[in-house]
């Protein structure tokens, strides 16, 4: 069984928000759209986004880490948002595990958003239906796109390629390998929702310099010493031979 998902590499995410606005851009004019904005030019502008990037500070100065943290629907394997939906508008696709909302059925009761611990569902306050990340289902299967581009918009946009996309049930897929080899983890495992999206933690590269590396024979400073020249008064062959 296939379970498509995103794997987000916090080790390289610089918090640029490309995935946020590219997601909005692709989806507002796609099957998930429009993604409405309220007060777009006024006080407290607010709108529907399917993906957000947040920033956390970990630790205290000077040992502070700044962590940029993108989050969209995690396409849980046990999605609590689905069974609670009274209309069946929220559903999880059998074929690829994508969790979707059928806008034609959704009554906008918001119950599913209560049932999602991750805060990734957003009601579109104009269209009055629940919206969420679709894993760009209208891109990834679009045979009209070149194969390389059959990926979620956010994945293609991400300048640091911090967003990997693939089948987490296929142990050979790049996402599974990344999860395995870079200690990928799910969010809030305590609820048993089994999120399909995973996060890769920060990894640090250190350099250790051994003292002996600092004092090497080829130290160029040695070259600056004057070339040894014997004193003129020192004995030489001149003194002992007479050709």
């Amino acid at each position: 069984m296939t379970q498509l998902a995103l794997v987000i590499d916090l080790n390289v995410c610089v918090g640029c928000h490309a995935c946020v606005t590219n997601c909005k851009e692709w989806n507002t004019s796609g099957m998930a759209g429009p993604l409405s904005d309220f007060n777009p030019y006024g006080a407290d502008p607010t709108g529907t986004f399917l993906n957000r990037v947040q920033t956390f500070e970990v630790g205290t100065f000077p040992n502070t880490e700044t962590v940029h943290f993108p989050k969209s629907c995690l396409h849980c394997e046990e999605p609590p948002c689905v069974p609670v939906c009274p209309t069946g508008a929220s559903y999880k696709r059998k074929e690829d595990g994508i969790v979707l909302v059928d806008y034609d059925k959704c009554i906008g009761c918001k119950y599913c958003s209560w049932a999602c611990p991750y805060g990734v569902r957003e009601i579109d306050e104009k269209q009055k239906v629940m919206k969420k990340c679709t894993l760009c289902v209208d891109r990834i299967y679009d045979m009209g796109l070149p194969e390389k581009e059959r990926k979620p918009a956010c994945v293609l946009a991400c300048p640091t390629s911090a967003r990997l996309f693939g089948d987490v049930h296929d142990p050979e897929s790049a996402v599974s390998v990344a999860i395995r080899e870079s200690s990928g983890y799910p969010l809030m495992p305590e609820w048993g929702t089994k999120p399909s999206n995973h996060y890769l933690p920060r990894r640090k590269t250190q350099l250790r310099i051994h003292d002996d590396e600092l004092v090497r024979a080829d130290n160029p400073l040695k070259k600056e010493r004057l070339l040894p020249k014997p004193d003129k008064s020192e004995p030489s062959l001149d003194d002992v031979t007479s050709w």
Binding site: D37, F38, N39
Partner: peptide
């Protein structure tokens, strides 16, 4: 300016 903006190209 609009209160609502629901861009959908085309």
């Amino acid at each position: 300016r609009p209160n609502w903006f629901a861009f959908f190209a085309g």
